[in-house]
Design a protein around this nucleic acid. Structure first.
Lengths: 257, 257
DNA sequence: ATTTCATAGATCCTATAGGATTTTAGGTTC
DNA sequence: GAACCTAAAATCCTATAGGATCTATGAAAT
């Protein structure tokens, strides 16, 4: 007989069908395969994924809490409508609150954080280069125009992922699991926002420069510098996202800049 | 025929069986009917509530995201283990972050907020009186000892609910739905913490005084006063909750007091 | 006495079925 | 032509059934 000891299989990470379905639906939502406001049929998804409705229902309950879908009893789920300007402002303020708190808690930075930030930033810069390349050759085209657009979208996704990695490195080192969870919850909304922006990424240089400033602030002896740099960064991102169509302002953040 | 316009019935609020089951399980968890670490059987709950397992499963998925239960694939749900000291510290820091941000956004307070806070505080004081009464006559007893204890628990629950109402009034007026949601998520953890504390409520006077200070700060012309009062309150709550058994400290909040 | 193994029970997980409700399509009337 | 009513299809919601997995109890062996 094969002498297999009671293997303490902790890292195999057994996952039920529900988790797989969740990721599949998430993929559908994030790629924008279904438009905001459109129905997300439970039975339809079950047929499409060749599973029963039960795991689909569980996955949707989970997704509802992320805010990506909304539920109306007896009427099913719908893709959440796009973020309004007011929600956008609130979202950035909430993000500023969480990110600055995490940055403060991660200060002073240990060597591990500094190395991780440098590595993440390098990847972010690479992704930024690709974004610029695809944006330039988008007009002339090496392949078909739809292929060029596909490359552009792919580069943008990679860029956003690396951007988020940078922030996640800080979150990981803040030592507060609740702030991490909050940031993840907000992250889903942020993604929704980015997907909704019509024009491509136009602030690669600015964002990278602000990230670099954050790294330098962590390296400096001033314990208030990192938080200030992060606050400035989040506010600039908000500013760049809110430049167009001046609408009804709803609230401001009363704090010293 | 009755000339009913396309009634925008928004407040009828239709709810499915899943929501009722959710509330029932929540009640079971908050009253401590099941001990931390114990199993939460899906089929068992379904039998107990006379419903099928499907809505129970959905409710548990929802509860899992609140942190009240934890899931292990193919092994079911369990009541979350009690908060460790490190988690407690992190929880209070997260709470301080969210509550102070909301307080800052609610400043300057309008008349509606001031009235709402005064009303909420009055109810909170009443509940505090009942807590003191039941604590005093707990020994002598008017009825059986277990009846006295029941009254004590009931008074404590009312007290906590009114305490939370006070904070919610501020949250409502901060104008940021994401901060509100974060506070609600943390609220479930806070409740878990309170239920775990062995001795009764011993800081009624202190808490009420700190709340009164917050009200006065909102009434003062100093725009930084409310946030400072709230920060002080949350920190004092944390201090009073963390006095006993000095364990390994994990992190501090680097900010000017 | 401790460990190992095996069997029985309970539980989780997924699939399928049917009742209730909503949505959609088509026809009718003003 | 627009509004209203009716009927059918689709969908949501809940319940039930069966296979897979885990847990627990008890017997056997070292």
């Amino acid at each position: 007989m094969n002498a297999q000891p009671p293997i303490p299989r902790a890292d195999i990470e057994r996952r039920g069908l529900r988790d797989l379905v969740y990721e599949h639906i998430l993929e559908i939502l994030l790629t924008g395969e279904i438009s905001p406001g459109e129905r997300v049929s439970i039975d339809g998804l079950a047929r499409q994924l060749n599973v029963s409705p039960t795991p689909v229902r569980e996955a949707l309950v989970d997704l509802e809490r992320t805010g990506l879908v909304v539920r109306e009893a007896l009427r099913g789920y719908r893709v959440s409508p796009p973020l309004e300007r007011g929600q956008l402002q609130e979202l950035f303020i909430a993000r500023e609150t969480v990110e600055t708190a995490a940055t403060r808690l991660a200060t002073p930075a240990d060597d591990e954080l500094l190395r991780a930030l440098a590595a993440a930033h390098a990847e972010h810069e690479k992704a930024g280069d690709r974004v610029r390349e695809t944006a330039e050759q988008g007009g002339e085209a090496t392949d078909s125009p739809e292929e060029a657009h596909r490359l552009q979208v792919s580069a943008a996704q990679e860029y956003f992922a690396r951007d988020r990695d940078f922030h996640d490195r800080i979150l990981e080192h803040c030592g507060n699991r609740y702030l991490v969870k909050m940031s993840q919850d907000l992250g889903a909304q942020v993604h929704r926002l980015r997907q909704a922006l019509p024009h491509g990424i136009t602030d690669v240089n600015e964002a990278l420069a602000e990230h670099r400033a954050i790294i330098e602030a962590f390296a400096s002896p001033d314990p208030t510098a990192p938080e200030a740099a992060m606050r400035h960064h989040v506010r600039m991102v908000a500013h760049r996202a809110l430049v167009e169509d001046p609408q009804t302002p709803t609230q401001e953040n009363h704090e010293d800049p």
